[in-house]
C-alpha cells in the first residue's frame, strides 16, 4: 500500500459556509506533501479532518487504510500531529510533555527513553529538555511540539503551519530538521503553510488550495513550468483604455506567449531569451506608453498561485482591503 493518505471528495461545511469543498488527493509513503494557500483557505480544516478532530460533512479520507470517520482510533495510533496553535502543558518541562505523550500512546519505558533521545537530537533540543516550557522562547516550544509529533513512530506526521512566528534562521533550521526526520524515520509528512518558500524548499509535491478548493497539485517544479519559462511583470502609467491598448499591442511581440492582467500589474509570459526587458521598454516607448515599473524573474510558487487563482497570495490574505503590495524581488 503506497498511498498513505487517500482523500476522496472531502468536504466540510460550517453551517452554510463551505470551508473545504470536494477535494481529492493522495499522498505516497515517504513523501513531504504540502498544502499551500492563504489564511482561511481551508488548510487547517482539512488537516483537522485527516487527524480525526473534525467529522467530514461528506466524502472520505483514509490514513494508512483506515477511515478517519469510522476508524478514528486506529488512525490516531498511526499519526503524529503538530497543531497550528499551542498544545503543550506550559507548566511541565519539554521532557515531561514528551514523556506524557509517549505514555498516552502506550510506549514502554525503555522505548520512551530511546525515542526521547532521538527526537531531542533530531530537533536540536538537547540541554533544554528539563526547562519548563513557559520560560522558553516560542520557537523552542514549537520545536518540542514538532518533536512530540515524531515521538510515537507515526507513519504520517501532520504539521499545521509549523514555522508560524519563526524568524528566518529558526525557520531554515526547522525545515532541515523536518527533512532529516523524514530521511531517518522514513515517515510521510503532510504540512500546511502560507509561506510559499516553505513549500518550495520542503515539499515533494504541493497542493495549492484557495477558497476551499485545490486549484493545482504537482511537484513545485512542474507547477512552475506550467506557468511559463520567464516572467516579466510591468506596470504602466495610464489605466483604462490605454492599458487595454497596451495589452493588445504587446501581444504582437513574437516572444510574448501569454499576457495576464492583474489588478495593477500586467504579467507577460515570455520565451526565454536575452534582453527582453530592454526590448519591452523600447517597444513601449515606440508606441507611446510609459512603463513605471518592470521586473523579470523566473516563476516562483508565488506566480503559480497568481496563475491559478488570479490573485497574489498576499492579496488573498488581505482580501477586501484592495491593497496590492508591490512585488519584492528576491524576497523569501
Amino acid at each position: 500500500m503506497d498511498d498513505v493518505i487517500e482523500v476522496h471528495q472531502l468536504t466540510k461545511k460550517f453551517g452554510d459556509f463551505t470551508a473545504v469543498d470536494h477535494i481529492d488527493f493522495t499522498v505516497r509513503r515517504g513523501e513531504i506533501f504540502g498544502f499551500v494557500g492563504p489564511n482561511g483557505a481551508g488548510k487547517s480544516t482539512t488537516i483537522k479532518m485527516l487527524t480525526t478532530m473534525l467529522h467530514p460533512t461528506s466524502g472520505s479520507a483514509r490514513i494508512c487504510g483506515y477511515d478517519v470517520a469510522k476508524e478514528s482510533d486506529e488512525v490516531r495510533r498511526h499519526i503524529g500531529i503538530v497543531f497550528q496553535d499551542r498544545s503543550s502543558d506550559d507548566y511541565l518541562t519539554g521532557r515531561q510533555n514528551l514523556d506524557f505523550h509517549a505514555r498516552m500512546y502506550g510506549m514502554s519505558k525503555s522505548d520512551r527513553e530511546e525515542k526521547m533521545e532521538e527526537v531531542l537530537d533530531l530537533l536540536e533540543l538537547k540541554g533544554k529538555e528539563n526547562i519548563r516550557l513557559r520560560i522558553l522562547p516560542e520557537g523552542v516550544r514549537r520545536r518540542f511540539e514538532v518533536a512530540r509529533g515524531f515521538m510515537t513512530r507515526p507513519d504520517v506526521v501532520f504539521l499545521d503551519e509549523p514555522t508560524i512566528g519563526f524568524d528566518i534562521k529558526a525557520r531554515m533550521d526547522l525545515w532541515n530538521q523536518i527533512k532529516t526526520a523524514r530521511e531517518k524515520e522514513g515517515v510521510t509528512v503532510s504540512l500546511t503553510t502560507h509561506f510559499i518558500e516553505e513549500a518550495n524548499y520542503l515539499c515533494d509535491r504541493v497542493a495549492i488550495i484557495d477558497k476551499a478548493r485545490i486549484v493545482a497539485l504537482d511537484t513545485p517544479r512542474n507547477l512552475k513550468e506550467a506557468v511559463g519559462t520567464d516572467l516579466i511583470s510591468v506596470q504602466i502609467a495610464e489605466g483604462g483604455e490605454r492599458r487595454a491598448a497596451f495589452i493588445e499591442k504587446v501581444k504582437e511581440l513574437d516572444w510574448v506567449k501569454r499576457v495576464e492582467e492583474y489588478s495593477n500589474s500586467i504579467l507577460l509570459n515570455a520565451e526565454s531569451g536575452e534582453g527582453r526587458v530592454a526590448d519591452l521598454i523600447d517597444f513601449a516607448d515606440a508606441h507611446g506608453f510609459v512603463i513605471t515599473s518592470i521586473d523579470e524573474h523566473e516563476p516562483s510558487l508565488e506566480d503559480v498561485f497568481l496563475h491559478f487563482t488570479g490573485r497574489t497570495i498576499r492579496e488573498a490574505e488581505g482580501e477586501g482591503t484592495g491593497m496590492r503590495p508591490g512585488r519584492i524581488v528576491g524576497e523569501m
Binding site: M53, I81, F83, S87, S88, M104, Y105
Partner: peptide, 10 residues
C-alpha cells in the same frame, strides 16, 4: 490548547 493533545490520543 492542551485538551487537543489529550483528546486526539487513542
Amino acid at each position: 490548547g492542551f485538551l487537543k493533545e489529550v483528546m486526539v490520543a487513542p
